[in-house]
């Protein structure tokens, strides 16, 4: 991705996954088109205002941009389009559906430590007990309680053996 060193845009943490980015991109494009149409419309003709989500508001607020300024809009569209196409997506599975706050906290860490535009795609895997599994482009990480139990299995077997021997 091409980072604009002069003005590195920030992706809000509320934008968690690629679907959010896609929605944001569509909103930006619709907004851009509306404003372009508004500039050339006949005075007095009716126009339907496009709806924007909080993602848009947060995006504008985080980057201190004005949606009414065409250059800002273009930059945002380009930025979001780049994010949509090139940002790394980490697939993470949990034993329950993560809440938005949880997802944002996780994405905050990911963008701080891993990649500034990392996206997280969450999944459901109840059998892991607790923790999560992480799948990147070519690797798989198991951070689940189930895997932790497997790693500590020898300890459990040793404890059971000790208890069995003592019982005999």
């Amino acid at each position: 991705m091409a980072h604009d060193e002069k003005k590195a845009l920030v992706l809000p943490v509320s934008v968690v996954n690629r679907s959010d980015v896609g929605r944001l991109l569509r909103e930006l494009k619709v907004l851009d088109e509306f404003l372009q149409q508004a500039a050339i419309r006949q005075p007095g003709s009716s126009m339907k205002m496009p709806r924007t989500s909080r993602f848009m508001d947060e995006l504008l607020q985080a980057n201190k941009l004005n949606a009414l300024v065409e250059a800002d809009r273009k930059a945002l569209v380009q930025f979001i389009d780049d994010v949509y196409k090139k940002a790394p997506t980490l697939h993470m599975s949990f034993n329950a559906d993560p809440s938005p706050l949880f997802s944002q906290q996780l994405v905050t860490w990911l963008r701080k430590e891993i990649h500034p535009y990392a996206l997280m795609q969450s999944g459901l895997q109840p059998s892991i007990g607790a923790g999560c599994t992480l799948r990147t482009a070519s690797k798989y990480f198991d951070f689940s309680l189930r895997e932790n139990f497997k790693a500590k299995r020898e300890l459990l077997v040793h404890q059971i053996q000790e208890a069995t021997r003592n019982a005999q």
């Binding site: 980490l90 990649h115 990147t136 482009a137």
Partner: peptide, 9 residues
């Protein structure tokens, strides 16, 4: 490991 994998990808 995660960062390296993302860079490689």
């Amino acid at each position: 490991a995660i960062i390296q994998d993302i860079k490689d990808g």
